[in-house]
């Protein structure tokens, strides 16, 4: 564990907590893309399948449980919570996210570290996470006002992946040259997608 990765995990955790706070405190999810939240839940379920089989560390297991439960809680709120679900603007959140799931799955079948169920699920989750933010970015660009909490949520999500890129560079030079090209390329794509959001976010 290096500082970049820890900072990345904390920033990621913080982004999820900011979103939960916004939804819980304001009882509203206006401006939040439910499709992006559903994609993130699929990302965590596909990636943390080894939660019960591979024990890596207490930190690793606790964080996996936190990410899975928080993303499920957000999706549940946006679908089932009587007050919150009314504030979801369905007509605005129109991105066909099924296409993203299918594309990530096909990519995972072709590009993976080993052609096993676990590795294909892992690669699928990495590719899907890289594009999961798209419905949210489309919603932000459509919406007139980017409310602060949603803007901060996307900002922290972008920062988390940027920290991970520093983490991969650090590990490359300290731990030897293991092939992490799946993580690297997807991480670069993911951070790149945020670039235009950061541009508008800071100019706003």
């Amino acid at each position: 564990m290096n500082a970049f990765r820890f900072l990345g995990d904390m920033t990621h955790l913080f982004s999820v907590l900011v979103l939960l706070l916004k939804i819980y405190a304001t009882k509203s999810c206006s401006g939040v893309s439910r499709k992006t939240q559903e994609l993130y839940m699929v990302v965590f379920l596909a990636r943390y399948m080894d939660l019960f089989t591979d024990y890596i560390s207490l930190y690793n297991s606790v964080m996996k449980v936190v990410f899975i439960t928080s993303s499920a809680a957000i999706v549940w709120c946006m679908r089932r919570h009587p007050q919150v679900r009314r504030t979801y603007d369905k007509e605005q959140d129109t991105f066909r996210h099924v296409v993203l799931v299918a594309a990530a799955f096909v990519l995972a079948l072709i590009f993976n570290e080993r052609f096993t169920f676990r590795e294909i699920c892992w690669a699928f989750s990495i590719y899907l996470e890289a594009v999961a933010i798209l419905p949210q970015l489309v919603l932000l660009q459509r919406g007139r006002n980017v409310d602060n909490l949603t803007g901060q949520y996307v900002f922290f999500l972008g920062a988390y992946r940027a920290f991970y890129i520093l983490n991969w560079i650090y590990r490359y030079f300290t731990e030897g040259h293991h092939s992490r090209w799946i993580s690297w390329l997807s991480g670069l794509v993911q951070t790149g997608l945020y670039a235009d959001f950061f541009y508008y976010y800071f100019l706003r």
Binding site: I56, N60, E113
Partner: peptide
């Protein structure tokens, strides 16, 4: 850990 190809990152 790398040998066992387990992914130790979140």
């Amino acid at each position: 850990r790398e040998g066992s190809h387990s992914h130790d990152e979140l």
